[in-house]
Design a protein around this nucleic acid. Structure first.
Lengths: 343, 343
DNA sequence: TTGAAAGCGCTAACAG
DNA sequence: CTGTTAGCGCTTTCAA
């Protein structure tokens, strides 16, 4: 008598395909991975069986046998910043073209968290890792090092040796902003920087501003420099704070566009004319900033490009050992309408 | 003579740990997966060896042996929409808490692409899949079905049977907007909807508007309804187009906030007073919309919450077979300042 | 061109 | 509580 119990839907395996196609499993494997070395007829037969049985290869088994997962991990500080979203979009697009899949983990700007997440990515066997910036915990570096997994960083300011970096010069970009402001006659320049602790990009931008101030023989007023989280409300609060200082800034440089927009909103609420009474600058060039009224003067950060280039470099490295070279891309100053002559 | 060639850095395996700790590999495995059933002393010894040797478990081997990868895949239309970013952020946060890792793939609103990506996720052995909306290709449904992988959808409007959905009623939300506009006296209402083809959310919103118009016995002017990609420039163009129609709308409902902002920017450029001459509404409640001047009347979509709830449901299902129930969350109308009495 | 067979590193019975 | 061992499904020599 036939066993009537419904069989557990066993996964279709390479053996099922081999059997149904009357070939060895090695031939099935070859057909799927190196079709060119299998005779056309055999291949067609196998492929049709694959189709018919709805065979889905086991990535785990493939990874175990071949030491490759075709996955790449990304460690990003937050998803709530369009600038990272743009980079990841470019990154994912290129990875996807080459049939890699992206594993994303969010660190919330927490280095311990980052190390933990990195460990997790490594356990998953990612073929490469994408990092933001060049400042990471020693433990992360150690992990990366002994796992000798392919790594790339984006957004960093230096042609780093430790980790190949595809970034741009945050510091120089910040200097350009100051140069521009100074050329407009501004002397009392304030800054709402991002939180610089454990964030090399924010720190480079801040240092760039300070350095440029010195270059122009302008005073650096610590009371005019504050650090703030990247959010509209924080930008608004920061402006309120700054305008209550003894020294009144005529221009405010913001660590990113979100802060700058917050400043713009608050200035509007306080009836402070921009750029009439106050010049404001951002950093990132988010899509919306060009539509604002007045349009925001900012730095055009090649975010999508960095992501895409990083992916291409990783793919090249993975498929041909091509060493990844650090590279700094262009970050242009976009002079729009939130900056004007000193009042 | 000693072999001086540098040995290939062989990966540290569970056997190395077992040997160094003088135990069997099973005990190492237990220590890592079910510490409570291992004697304290043995466990400590093993853990210290793990630390010392910098052991990283092989996810591939674990997955192959246990049929679980502790990864979850997400298929999203695009990364360039903050609303999805917010959902993914909530989703990732909850997954991460439960030690799952997120695999992201972008479909670009392309169903064939979606099926291909889904297939790839399945090959990677994801324990669950997150989908946006309820409209997917037949092939995707087939794939999901026979892989009997855990699935959840977010953003959809129905308590679906085929796929558990944690969403909100897009149609009803759209109706609320019309009700609001009608209560302000508007009769000639136009709409800039998203592209509705293969997008149930966009279509539900559009249909909701049309249905509500009928409910109020108002004419549905097809010439006042256009579909457009979600971008500021597209929103601007759409407004230009609408104001050149014979019938002039006194209110324009936008398929999302990005379109609405485009309309606001263009209205400003054309010196059309909002809401004086034209009322405008959005959909999503992006963080910036409350800061705009005038602040945008929109629908508060629980994007982050949907993502977080979806993750929790998946985790519960994976760890206890708890069936996932479809659920519709609240999406409130946020009346702000871009809507006013008909001129 | 193809097949047989040896692992890849781990989990989970099973036996002790 | 712990060790032994049989796979998990695939890739990749090695032979044929």
């Amino acid at each position: 008598m036939v066993d009537e119990t419904k069989p557990v839907e066993r996964q279709v395996t390479i053996e099922d395909i081999a059997e149904a196609a009357n070939v060895g499993i090695a031939t099935v494997s070859r057909t799927l991975n190196h079709p060119e070395i299998v005779r056309q007829k055999t291949r067609d037969k196998i492929l049709s069986v694959v189709q018919e049985l709805g065979y889905i290869r086991s990535g785990a088994a493939r990874a175990l046998a071949s030491k490759q997962t075709f996955t790449v991990g990304a460690l990003i500080p937050t998803m709530n910043n369009a600038i990272f979203a743009a980079s990841i979009a470019g990154f994912e697009r290129e990875l996807s073209k080459a049939n890699y899949t992206l594993l994303i983990t969010v660190t919330n700007y927490d280095r311990d968290q980052e190390t933990i997440q990195l460990h997790k990515l490594l356990e998953h066997g990612v073929d490469a890792v994408l990092l933001i910036g060049l400042e990471h915990s020693k433990r992360s570096y150690t992990l990366l090092n002994k796992s000798n997994c392919c790594v790339v960083s984006i957004f960093g300011s230096r042609r780093s040796q430790k980790i190949p970096n595809i970034g741009f010069d945050n510091k120089k970009a910040a200097e350009k902003i100051v140069d521009h402001l100074v050329s407009l006659g501004h002397q009392r320049i304030g800054m709402i920087a991002g939180i610089t602790r454990h964030n090399d990009r924010a720190r480079d931008r801040k240092n760039g501003v300070i350095k440029a101030l010195q270059k122009h023989n302008l005073a650096y007023h610590p009371s005019l420099f504050i650090e703030s989280q990247y959010s509209h409300p924080h930008g608004r609060e920061a402006l309120k704070h700054l305008i209550h200082q003894n020294i009144k800034p005529t221009a405010i440089i913001c660590g990113n566009d979100v802060l700058a927009m917050g400043v713009l909103f608050e200035a509007d609420a306080q009836r402070i004319k921009v750029p009439g009474q106050l010049s404001v600058t951002g950093f990132d060039n988010l899509p919306i900033t060009g539509h604002l009224k007045p349009a925001l003067t900012t730095i055009d950060v090649p975010s999508e490009q960095m992501g895409a280039e990083a992916a291409k470099a990783i793919i090249a490295n993975l498929s041909s050992e091509a060493k990844i070279k650090s590279r700094l891309l262009e970050a242009k100053l976009l002079i729009r309408n939130t900056t004007g002559p000193r009042r």
